[in-house]
């Protein structure tokens, strides 16, 4: 009733059925299903003597394994219906905007250094945007040609630095905050100027912050953004809300300092305005400027984007041209 030869023949007959073109699905039913020889044989196994069990048990298992292997449902095959040589095509896809992409990168770097994201309104009080930051009433920046004013005397903020007053109101030092967002300048646009642009501002207050830290933070930022071999220099500059004030230059990535069109032949790119928070600002927040010191910096997002993508016209960033938007990010 159970015989070696007929069991072994199962493999041969399954092979020839397969070659004859029968489907693995049907053959699995025939050779491995509930009515198959092997299934029936397994059912008989408990009734056999222990010697027979020793003989047929391993045999049945081996034949079953071989049949399983032979009748795999999922097999590699050389006969396929797909055309693998068809050209590559991208599925419908989208793109980050280069400005926002850059902004997110910048925020991530500062965030890792310990700066928290702190967002404030874009339409601000005159005080937050100007007076609090020591931009005096008679300062040229107050002129109509530079600032958009609403009819109810609010300001479309001209700098993300406008967040300093709210930061000082909301957080107890020590703190470190950043914000990136839209700022507005009532000036005509050209290859290097936009009237609606983005800026990132950083602001930290502590008892032991000084100029070395300002430099460290910013140098670290540029290294992470542009690579470890960036070269920087700091020069005196004037912003009413910092003292000392500085401008950070980065050696032109294109010409490595020898001077080219991208850097106006100077070899250096003006990239970050920064400084030590003016003591009057600390004082107006009710803090002792002899104890608390702050570092502050402001970076034009589009300027960084232009350097990252080696663009030469800033207006591309607001044109919403698909041919541009699909290039970079």
């Amino acid at each position: 009733m159970m015989d070696n030869n007929s069991l072994n023949n199962l493999i041969i007959s399954a092979k020839s059925d397969l070659e004859a073109g029968q489907s693995t699905y049907d053959l699995r039913i025939k050779y491995l299903g509930k009515n198959s020889e092997i299934f029936k044989s397994f059912k008989l196994l408990p009734s056999l003597s222990s010697d027979e069990k020793k003989e047929f048990g391993p045999l049945l298992n081996s034949i079953k394994a071989n049949l399983e292997l032979l009748l795999q449902e999922d097999v590699k095959t050389s006969k396929i219906s797909q055309d693998y040589t068809a050209p590559l095509k991208v599925h419908k896809h989208g793109h980050s905007h280069p400005t926002d992409y850059t902004m997110a990168l910048m925020i991530n770097i500062f965030s890792k250094l310990g700066f928290k994201v702190f967002e404030t309104p874009e339409i601000e009080d005159e005080n937050d945007n100007f007076s609090f930051l020591r931009v005096a009433k008679d300062h040229p920046a107050r002129d109509m040609q530079d600032t958009f004013w609403t009819t109810d005397e609010k300001v479309l903020r001209t700098q993300t630095t406008a967040f300093q007053r709210r930061a000082l109101e909301q957080f107890k030092p020590p703190f470190a905050v950043i914000q990136a967002g839209k700022v507005f300048r009532a000036e005509s646009e050209d290859a290097t100027h936009l009237s609606e642009l983005n800026m990132l501002d950083g602001f930290a207050i502590g008892t032991d912050l000084n100029f070395t830290h300002l430099k460290g933070v910013l140098y670290n930022f540029l290294r992470q953004l542009f690579g470890n071999d960036v070269k920087v220099r700091f020069r005196p500059s004037f912003f009413p809300f910092v003292e000392p004030g500085a401008e950070m230059d980065m050696m032109c990535l294109k010409c490595k300092g020898s001077g080219c069109k991208a850097c106006g032949n100077s070899g250096w790119l003006e990239i970050i305005g920064c400084g030590i928070t003016h003591p009057e600002i600390i004082e107006s927040a009710g803090l002792d400027p002899n104890i608390y010191h702050g570092i502050a910096f402001g970076i034009g997002v589009e300027r960084i984007a232009m350097r990252m993508f080696e663009m030469d016209d800033i207006r591309e960033l607001v044109k919403n041209n698909p041919e541009f938007l699909e290039q970079l990010t």
């Binding site: 250094l113 310990g114 470190a176 830290h213 460290g216 140098y219």
Partner: peptide, 11 residues
Amino acid sequence: MVIPNLINNSA
């Protein structure tokens, strides 16, 4: 140039 140890690191 010194990197400060800002509180609330990395948030």
